[in-house]
Amino acid sequence: MSEITPDLVRHLGVLARIKLTDDEVTQLTGQLDAIVDNIAKVSEVATADVAATSHPIPLSNVFRPDEVGQTLTLEQTLQNAPDAADGRFRVTAILGEEQ
């Protein structure tokens, strides 16, 4: 017994705001039904003693720990800036140009 019907596919299309042609509904009905059947087959063999995995290979964090190091002074930070004011980078306004 098929769980996915053309009416269900049309309804899903309306919910997703996707306009589907009759050919697309027919094609998607078969494809979605196959997906649901395959998920059911996997569910049959999945047992509680098999742990769920998000990745087939165990992963480990390769990043170094965050440590506070030497930082630039405000003067060093702004020394090569094309324009600075009040201890900040000064840039031209860009908001509102294309509105």
Rank of each mutant, 00 (worst) to 15 (best):
K41V: 06
S60Q: 10
P82Q: 04
T77S: 15
R64Y: 15
I4P: 01
A85Q: 07
T73Q: 03
L74E: 11
G69T: 03
D22R: 03
D22K: 03
E75C: 04
T53Q: 14
V50K: 15
D86K: 06
L28G: 02
L74Y: 04
E67L: 15
L74F: 06
V50C: 15
T53F: 08
P65R: 04
T47C: 07
P65D: 12
G69V: 02
D83K: 14
E75D: 06
Q31V: 09
N80A: 08
L15S: 06
I57M: 10
P65I: 05
G30R: 13
T53H: 07
T29N: 01
A16N: 08
R88W: 10
S60I: 14
D83Y: 14
D49W: 03
A52S: 13
V50N: 07
R90C: 08
E98C: 11
T29M: 00
V25Q: 00
S54H: 14
G13V: 00
H11P: 14
G13E: 01
N61T: 06
Q31R: 12
D49Q: 15
L15I: 12
D33K: 02
V50L: 10
I18L: 09
L8Y: 03
A48Q: 09
Q99N: 09
L8Q: 03
A52G: 15
D86P: 03
G13P: 00
S43E: 12
L15T: 05
F63P: 05
F89W: 07
Q99W: 12
S54G: 12
P58H: 03
D86Q: 06
V91C: 09
P6N: 02
R10Y: 04
T77Y: 11
L32W: 02
V25S: 00
Q31W: 14
N61D: 08
L72D: 04
Q79C: 11
S60K: 09
E3R: 15
R88V: 10
P82V: 05
R88Q: 11
L12P: 02
L8H: 01
D83S: 15
L8N: 01
N38Q: 08
S2V: 07
A84P: 02
E67H: 14
R17L: 05
K41Q: 11
I39N: 07
P58W: 02
P6S: 01
E97L: 14
L59R: 06
G96H: 01
T21Q: 03
I39E: 13
L20C: 01
A46D: 13
R17N: 12
T92L: 13
T71W: 12
E67I: 10
A46L: 09
D49L: 06
T29L: 02
T21N: 03
Q76M: 04
H55L: 09
L59I: 08
A48W: 14
E44G: 06
F89G: 04
Q27G: 09
K19I: 08
E24C: 03
P56N: 08
I57F: 14
S2C: 09
